[in-house]
Simulated assay, not measured.
Amino acid sequence: MTLTPHLGLQYPPPPSTLRHARHNVDIYLPTSSPTKGLIVFVPGGAWISSSSLDETLDQLPSLFPQDYALAIVNYRLSRQRGEEELAIKHPSHVLDVQAAVEWLVEGGAGGLLDEKTRSNVWIMGHSAGGHIIAQLLLETPSITPLPDSVRSRIKGYMFSEPIADIDSLVEEYPDYLTWFISAAFGPPPYLSASPANEKSPFTLPTIYQTNPPSVLISSSPKDELISSRQPLELKARLEGLGFKDTLRYEGDWLGKNGEEGNHDQLLKSESFGRLVKDWVKEEL
């Protein structure tokens, strides 16, 4: 089976935001089988460099379930130079991804996705993308939440090598402050942008208190950029908010299969594809 690409599809920008060239999604659709659902993938790139066409992502359409549609979301980036880029700071990245998810799930990507596909949605985020989707899973006063009509269709969230507590990240990796954190978030402190911090204002949405989605957090000791501290802090935070039976943590999924892979290259591994397929199948 193969997936047919539909590249660079523009999604409506967030409210009060001008349309940007990066407000687009690449969608891959099954060509020879009924579509069982939709996987939405949010790339990382430290909020400063990311593209749905990055070489590190080129295996995803073949690794992921071939009977699911795949949408890879682009969003505006923060950079350390250039007047326009300097203006893009948190929560702009989150608002862009939220707008894309609403367009995919409620709008059907302009008619490209049918009702069945949009009723079985799985959200994934890698690295900084994990930080972004944590703010779709949870709620915070500074960001208008996803509508319940969208949340009710999301069956699961997967966090791959996620960043989840910015202050904790800077404490562990001080060089990251000048490398990309300041560009994306401004000066410290970062409590209001740290979903994994138990003192942060993030809460569990009402709809998830009675019907929590499946959550998978994956971390690899082969990752040279993000240690297990961030994923484990996210796990502890979600458990504290009430996620128990629907939360799974995979701490050495790559090593178990004898595969190698650094922070980004692990996205090309057969083990990563199997991890995603098994996660989606849990709810079938």
Rank of each mutant, 00 (worst) to 15 (best):
E172G: 03
A193F: 01
E102V: 14
H126L: 03
L169S: 12
M1Y: 11
V25R: 00
V170C: 15
E106G: 13
S92M: 13
Q209G: 02
Q265G: 10
S228F: 00
P14T: 01
P34F: 03
E239F: 08
R248I: 12
G130S: 04
S194A: 04
S214W: 05
T17L: 03
I181G: 02
P189Q: 07
L53D: 08
P205K: 02
E85Y: 15
T206R: 11
S219M: 05
D278M: 07
K277T: 13
P221H: 00
L146T: 02
S78G: 13
L77H: 10
G240K: 12
S182T: 10
S127H: 02
L191W: 03
L95H: 11
S182H: 11
G273A: 13
L57C: 10
E161W: 01
G261M: 10
S51N: 10
E85I: 06
K277F: 04
L284P: 06
L63V: 10
D58I: 13
G261I: 10
L112A: 09
V40Q: 02
G82A: 14
G255Q: 00
W47K: 03
L284W: 12
P205W: 00
E259H: 09
P147Q: 09
E83L: 15
E283G: 09
E282N: 06
T210Y: 07
P145C: 01
E85F: 15
R19F: 04
E106T: 13
Y157D: 00
G186M: 08
S194R: 06
K199Q: 13
M158Y: 07
S33N: 02
P231Y: 07
I207S: 12
S149G: 05
Y11E: 00
K281N: 11
V280L: 10
E161G: 08
M124C: 07
P147C: 08
I181A: 04
N262K: 13
H6V: 08
L266R: 14
I133Q: 05
V42D: 03
S194K: 03
D67A: 09
E171S: 14
I154V: 15
D114F: 06
L266Y: 07
I48Y: 04
A100W: 12
L95D: 11
Y190W: 07
H93M: 14
P30K: 02
H20S: 07
S62C: 08
L138W: 00
A236P: 02
G242H: 09
N211F: 07
P61E: 01
L267M: 15
D54G: 14
Y176I: 05
I123C: 01
P5E: 11
T117Q: 01
V105L: 12
V101W: 00
E85T: 14
E282W: 06
